[in-house]
Amino acid sequence: MSEEMMEEGGGGVIKKFCYINRKAPYGTIYALESLEVVLIGAAFEQDVSVVFADDGIYQLTKGQDTAGIEMKNFSPTYRALEMYDVEKLYVEKESLEERGMTADDLIVPVEVLSSAQLQDLMEDQDVVLSF
């Protein structure tokens, strides 16, 4: 990162950023554009958490095939998050259960948290962006 970006980025301030993904990956653009914020935001070296809840957990499902809907399958990008030092990925337990899924159905390792635990996590954040 250049010095100019550091300066622009807030002069060494590190805040807790939490991105919450609530929507299915392809029905709307929110999931894709949320991922773009997470990737760009990584350059600012903040303390980032990414949460998947409700239909947002479908963003991480294995074996996505988008050929029939003429959309780019961007799910492999979630596997690249680690390279951007975005390592804290959380999935809501209730959302998984309601959809008959487990963490094994997901393309990246995640920490499964209950709704109550997620509430505590969000309480602790400086910036929460919900998509």
């Binding site: 970006m5 980025g9 935001g41 903040q46 910036v127 962006l129």
Partner: peptide
């Protein structure tokens, strides 16, 4: 401008 402006606003 770029998305960095959003993140920077979050920081500032």
């Amino acid at each position: 401008s770029g998305l960095g402006q959003l993140v920077e606003a979050g920081i500032q």
